[in-house]
């Protein structure tokens, strides 16, 4: 197979382009060089995340408290959904290796089958991410932002108490747009079991809380976006959108490449070319996407 890949005359002198560096074909080597640069890009993003997290470590949200939901299940299930997403991506990496492996053996139908499974995995992952983003943007229990931009939560028995429940609003029918800080203060005052959890995770009792809200509260936060974040420090939301978004864009590009690859395979392009090296090159990119997710999973969700 190597002979068909490397079309250069190995015996020609170097100035005539005869040498084949590292015994790797041009395309594969360039894919690796691209992946080095991409590695450094993602390293920079995650290190940037590390900077902000170290700098604001006292007020940084705990990821296990943020990503606790699973579609169609009630209650808290921290980590389960991202674990599923990780599983999907690892699985699609496996189907990709299988496609590469059958490519080496020139078995067109098996390549088509495993490529299709890989595309399915990629689409499933993107859908999961869309759900996760949707949930993160919509928010969970709501929070209160102070004049100094700190984020605090309403609590009952030291557990976070939903502002939607406090206002008797349904978080999904749009009625939550109908209340503001003054309404929240009013309802808060009428329930003496309520207290506040401050940004540094200390608690205030009911009467101190009312005074504290009067002096410091600026607005109600529902959900997260680039400028406010009910889960805690706004940078957490910014990094979340930026890093998982950039990774998701990689996955999306990967799926597009895989679809082109699948069409070419079905058309017999690689059969005619005599080798399936393109499957291997796109495969490298796809594994890289999985590799990045392994790190995002650890540094965004686990620690």
């Amino acid at each position: 197979m190597a002979d068909s890949l490397i079309q250069n005359d190995m015996n020609a002198p170097a100035w005539k382009g005869g040498d084949v560096p590292y015994k790797a074909s041009y395309g594969k080597m360039m894919m690796w060089f691209f992946l080095i640069t991409d590695t450094l890009t993602f390293s920079a993003f995650l290190t940037g995340y590390g900077f902000s997290r170290f700098k604001f470590k006292d007020v940084w949200p705990v990821p296990e408290d943020v990503f606790t939901h699973f579609p169609f299940l009630h209650g808290d299930h921290p980590l389960l959904f991202v674990a599923l997403m990780t599983f999907i991506l690892i699985m699609s990496s496996v189907t990709m290796v299988l496609a590469v492996n059958y490519g080496h053996k020139m078995q067109k139908n098996k390549v088509i089958m495993w490529l299709s499974f890989t595309i399915l995995g990629g689409v499933l992952f993107l859908s999961s991410q869309a759900w996760e983003w949707g949930h993160f943007i919509h928010g969970d229990s709501g929070a209160i932002e102070l004049n100094n931009a700190d984020v605090i939560h309403v609590v009952k028995d030291k557990e976070i108490y939903s502002i939607y429940d406090l206002m008797g609003a349904d978080s999904h029918d749009g009625s939550h747009h109908a209340f503001g800080m003054a309404d929240v203060k009013e309802n808060f005052a009428s329930d003496t079991e309520l207290g506040l959890r401050l940004y540094d995770k200390t608690f205030l009792d009911h009467s101190t809380s009312i005074e504290y809200l009067d002096q410091n509260a600026s607005k109600v936060l529902l959900g997260a976006n680039l400028t406010s974040n009910e889960y805690g420090h706004v940078l957490f939301a910014d990094y979340f959108f930026f890093i998982t978004g950039f990774h998701g864009f990689h996955v999306f590009s990967g799926v597009v490449l895989l679809i082109i690859l699948l069409i070419n395979t079905i058309m017999g392009t690689y059969e005619k070319r005599g080798h399936y090296e393109m499957v291997e090159k796109i495969g490298l990119y796809w594994h890289f996407v999985d590799l990045v997710w392994v790190f995002v999973f650890t540094f965004f969700y686990l620690v």
Partner: peptide, 11 residues
Amino acid sequence: FMHLGFEEKSF
């Protein structure tokens, strides 16, 4: 998976 373990050592 990325087969780097089986490439040339220098690579």
